[in-house]
Amino acid sequence: MPVGVVLRKSPGVTKWAKFAWRAVCILPGADPADWKLLRTDGDVSDYHVTTVPLTIYRTDTEAYVHGLAANVPCVYVICRETSDPAKPLEVVMVTASPYEAQDYSDNGEDIVEKVMMTPQVHAWIASYVDEHHEEEAFVKRRRDKHREHKQDGIGDARISQTTDVYRAPRRAGSEPAQ
């Protein structure tokens, strides 16, 4: 589904940042755009920055179920800073998976913005999940009895060692205390 991304430019709150940018909404089914000014209210401006595809995958339905069950279902806009002052952010992607958004936020280079999901997108994802999601039963992994090794305190049997591996190390040339 093509999704337009709207970023808001507002005055910065510190002397080091002249402006603050944040994603404020998405526009499902939007036409292509390239930093189109939508509205201005004083020092605050909203831009339709770009339109990117929102792609959902059958293997990620567990993440979508988690995201749809939130108090406020959201999509995540992933942006990167650029060196162009006219276009300071590049929208990398939009995802409905909170797990994928977490992966992008972990790298420290990307900006991940949480944006409320529109009713159209919510209905589209919910119908996809209803059709494709399959609950997986939790299966606890059990140890293999034949692979368990007896602990005798000497350590790995493949290494020749006649003393206990948990003894205190000694310095070379030092005699044990009597």
Rank of each mutant, 00 (worst) to 15 (best):
M1S: 11
A168N: 09
C74T: 00
W124H: 07
Q120L: 12
V165K: 14
S83I: 04
R142N: 12
T95E: 00
A17D: 13
T59N: 13
Y76H: 06
V115I: 10
P2H: 14
T95A: 00
E175K: 14
D84W: 02
C74L: 01
I125P: 00
W124G: 00
P98N: 05
P119N: 04
E135D: 15
R141V: 14
K114Y: 03
Q102P: 01
C79W: 02
P32A: 12
P88F: 00
D43K: 11
W35F: 05
L37I: 07
M1I: 11
S174H: 11
P2G: 11
A168T: 14
E135V: 13
V44C: 02
M116I: 07
M1K: 06
L89D: 04
R170Y: 04
A86G: 05
V13R: 15
C25S: 15
F138M: 13
L37Q: 06
A33T: 03
K36F: 04
H66G: 02
T162W: 10
V44E: 10
M93H: 04
P169L: 12
T82I: 01
R22L: 15
V112K: 07
G67R: 00
R170A: 08
P119S: 05
L38Q: 10
I125H: 00
S174M: 09
K150W: 11
R141K: 13
A172N: 09
D46F: 03
D46M: 03
H133W: 14
D152W: 13
T59E: 15
I56V: 15
D41E: 12
C25D: 10
F138E: 15
G29A: 06
